[in-house]
């Protein structure tokens, strides 16, 4: 894949911002944009909002270095290492010899960053996509001792009659629900 673009990355070194660099950055973005999330492979890292940017910099010797920036969905997300490795290998395979993956912590990831295409892919895979993330300014976080007031509709049958099973699921970003219409359990990507 991207064999037409990949070798261009090794093109003549020049000052950043030249046409060759622009093409190479575009090619790198295309490659990085196709890397999938290891735990939710129906989503690309770009659709998940984890891939924050792909840039090209020149080191002291003038060699091109692709810099990809990623942000964790949750602080302890163990998939970060796999994401980093996948990005490096896919870019290497596409001909980008030097790849650096940086971590971006600020601003923190929000489920609002999942793209429309990503939401459609989640639904197609039987997962419930997140609603709008709660907006709050500073000050004490209100305590919630009851079940959440709004439950997501069932991604399988569309029924609104669903119940929260647990706010913690198989991955840090998902909650468990069950549908009282079709009786199937389903996973919901949490709003944060």
């Amino acid at each position: 894949m991207n064999t037409t673009h990949g070798p261009a990355a090794h093109g003549p070194a020049g000052p950043a911002g030249t046409g060759a660099d622009q093409n190479a950055v575009q090619a790198a973005r295309e490659v990085a944009g196709q890397v999938r999330d290891p735990e939710m492979p129906m989503l690309t890292l770009a659709d998940l909002g984890v891939l924050r940017g792909v840039e090209m910099v020149r080191d002291e010797s003038g060699a091109a270095v692709v810099v990809a920036s990623i942000t964790p969905t949750y602080t302890g997300c163990p998939a970060m290492a796999t994401m980093r490795d996948d990005l490096v290998h896919r870019l290497n395979d596409a001909g980008f010899g030097r790849v650096e993956v940086r971590v971006v912590l600020d601003p923190p990831w929000s489920s609002d960053w999942i793209s429309e295409r990503g939401r459609a892919a989640l639904r197609a895979a039987g997962l419930s996509a997140p609603g709008p993330a709660p907006r709050r300014s500073t000050g004490p976080v209100p305590l919630t001792l009851g079940p959440p007031r709004t439950a997501p509709p069932c991604p399988r049958c569309g029924s609104a009659a669903t119940r929260l099973t647990s706010e913690f699921g198989a991955t840090a970003c998902k909650a468990l629900y069950r549908c009282t219409g079709c009786l199937e359990p389903f996973e919901h990507v949490k709003e944060i």
Binding site: P72, Y74, T75, G76, C77, P78, F168, G169, A172
Partner: peptide, 9 residues
Amino acid sequence: NMALDLLGQ
């Protein structure tokens, strides 16, 4: 999950 969040922090 909570252990994992705290380990990340």
